[in-house]
Nucleic acid binder design. Structure first.
Lengths: 221, 221
DNA sequence: GCAATAGTGTCTTTTAGACAGTATCTT
DNA sequence: AAGATACTGTCTAAAAGACACTATTGC
């Protein structure tokens, strides 16, 4: 039997969003071999003829599979080896990305059997994923949480205009625990990433001031 | 002209060490095309037949090129695209690693024209490196500094037994600035990574207590 | 007024920075 | 004793945590 000369290269993405104040990740049910019928992170093979980078591959796959365009993907790490994919020696470059919570329903499944927003919380028994995607999801979640713990604001998960309480709920959903309101506001007040608006949300209580992300906001370190 | 079907995959490593209390990185002068004669980070092509992972590739390349065995390599990120290498669509997985300062001279150049420990400090005008290795070196340095700023101890850079002052000098070399002795010791005292020894270094002054890394020490986050 | 959520004030604890002071060796 | 480096103590400043308090709406 001939040995492989080239590895099989794919880009996978852990796409996170918030649904009902809970952190969720997008899973797809694979419609092709290998691992047909199993759940996995959305991913696909590099096409050197049309991709200008692996990030480009990941973005194209998301566009094709679920018709969503993510401007910025963040690298997590790569996974590689001869045994992690039945097709032979393979490399997966893992990315993560954040989808605004108000766009969570605007997904169209095309090339996949099914799509699901799956909770990521500790207690909830996660789905068993194909390939090494359980480890991939853990790695992506760890990077995301690390960023937020280092006080990066996950503004990409929020609608264009949001309240500070909404932001806090989002941070809590990512970290998996509550944070103190006073300390939280003290920290983010004066952040160059936040722009105060002159608009308020009205409900059956005191109105909440709206904010937006500053124009040059980026979630990077 | 036929389009490439497979990318060219390599693993590059930024191997850091300390020389005269200065952070240095290992550079090699390339003896083959492309970029023959230019300086670069040590790297080489994946060999699916013998490598069990890209980390394995990086380790093998270091062993072959400079006869040094690095047990643990840390991923930085990958670089990919159609134009970064003259051979066509390529992927480089970048790693970084730390070589103990007392092993800095034990390098044997075999397949490369020349090997050099090059300073990394801000002011010193660095060498211009081949491919995108300038960006790679910057990325690796950023990750290394980030770890140390987050209070990881770079014990891999030190000899088996070392003094706290030696450790502080190493941290300062990585960060590029001095740190306060009192605060530094307060922080690391009681660290599970450090084991106090009953040995002391004698010189023309008060003896300094020796320490070693604990058995289960790892530089990871 | 009450319920509900927005938003602030303040006390305490922890951590880091600055820097002076003491300790122990060789010569 | 002098010189050198190891090591410690203490004051202060900044940040984080806990938690009570006030503010503004709809009903």
């Amino acid at each position: 039997m001939e040995r492989v000369l080239y590895p099989f290269v794919t880009a996978d993405t852990a796409l996170f969003s918030i649904d009902e104040d809970e952190l969720k990740v997008l899973l797809v049910r694979r419609s092709n071999a290998p691992a047909k019928g199993e759940w996995a992170l959305p991913g696909g093979a590099l096409k050197p003829a049309i991709d200008t980078s692996l990030e480009d591959t990941a973005r194209r796959v998301l566009r094709d599979k679920i018709s969503v365009d993510i401007p910025h993907l963040e690298q997590v790490r790569s996974f590689s080896g001869p045994d992690r994919d039945a097709r032979g020696w393979s490399i997966s470059q893992l990315f993560y990305a954040l989808l605004p919570r108000d766009k969570i329903d605007a997904l169209v499944k095309t090339k996949v059997e099914a799509v699901e927003w799956s909770p990521v919380a500790e207690g909830s028994s996660r789905r068993r994923l194909a390939f090494d995607h359980d480890a991939q999801l853990s790695a992506a979640l760890k990077v995301l949480r690390g960023r937020v713990e280092q006080h990066a604001l996950p503004l990409h998960l929020l609608p264009q205009r949001f309240t500070l309480t909404g932001l806090q709920r989002t941070v809590e959903a990512i970290l998996g625990h509550e944070v103190d309101k006073s300390a939280f506001r003290r920290r983010i007040k004066g952040s160059p990433d936040l722009v105060e608006l002159d608009e308020y949300v009205r409900g059956a209580q005191r109105p909440a001031q709206l904010f937006r992300a500053s124009d040059d906001f980026s979630f990077e370190a």
